Amino acid sequence: MRQLAARAWHRLRGSWQWRLLWLAHAKFMVGVTGVVRDDEGRVLLLRHRLWPQERPWGLPTGCAARGEEFTQTVVREVREETGLHVRTGALVRLRSGYRLRVEVAYEAVYVGGSVRIDPMEILEARWFSPDALPDGLQESHRELITPTAPAPASARTGADS
């Protein structure tokens, strides 16, 4: 049966193979986050209008456009949401996320501009010291900012005991 399937696959060739693969596999959105720091080591956090009221604070985040390099997604999203200019650095997270989402995060450095928030998405933009982060910060973003911080007791698994 496998040999028959292999022969049929080879006869399809090119675009038909691609179409079958496309139909058979999951389609993903790519969420891209920037951990933007200034020259004092502070991190840029945004109070998002569309996020849950109990967790409105987070890093600049958005979805990659088709064909866009993820580093450029960080630059674009930060500029759109805050008016600030950044330069991307190291990749700090790449993992599967909620449902059909891939999550990508990069370190980024503030290089210029002044804050001009997009009021449709953002309520406030502020710089925070990593040791004085606001309440209501997304936990996954807290982990990106302070990756060596111990997980809260509620997040630990039995394997740590």
Rank of each mutant, 00 (worst) to 15 (best):
L137I: 02
V75G: 00
G14F: 07
E54P: 00
S154M: 00
A108C: 07
L21A: 07
V74G: 07
H25M: 09
P130K: 01
E68T: 08
R79D: 05
V75C: 00
D39L: 14
W51F: 13
R156L: 14
A151G: 00
L44I: 08
V86M: 07
A153I: 06
E143Q: 13
G67K: 08
R19L: 14
G67S: 06
V36W: 02
V43L: 06
L94Q: 14
T73D: 07
G113V: 09
L21Q: 07
G83A: 12
A153S: 04
I122N: 05
F128T: 04
R79H: 12
H141K: 00
L44K: 06
Q53M: 06
A105H: 06
T82E: 05
A159M: 06
G97K: 04
R42I: 11
L59A: 11
R156P: 02
G14N: 13
L20G: 11
F28G: 02
V111S: 13
A26C: 01
L45V: 10
A153Y: 01
D39Y: 15
A90N: 12
L44A: 08
S114K: 15
A108L: 04
A149F: 01
G113A: 10
R66Y: 13
W18Y: 08
T148R: 14
R66E: 13
E139K: 03
F128N: 04
R101M: 14
G31N: 05
R99K: 11
I145D: 00
L84K: 02
T88W: 03
L23Q: 14
R42D: 12
R66T: 12
W127T: 04
L20C: 10
G83L: 10
V111C: 15
A65H: 10
P134W: 02
G62P: 15
D38H: 15
Y98E: 12
A105R: 04
G112C: 12
T146V: 10
H85I: 09
E80V: 03
R116K: 13
E81S: 10
L137G: 03
I122Q: 08
S154P: 00
G97P: 06
A64C: 10
S129T: 11
W16G: 08
V32K: 05
R101L: 15
E143M: 06
Y98P: 02
S15R: 15
A26K: 04
E139D: 07
G83I: 12
A159Q: 09
A153T: 03
G31A: 10
R156E: 12
R116W: 09
E54L: 01
R76E: 06
L123N: 06
R101G: 08
S140W: 11
C63P: 04
G113Y: 07
A159K: 11
E107I: 03
A153M: 02
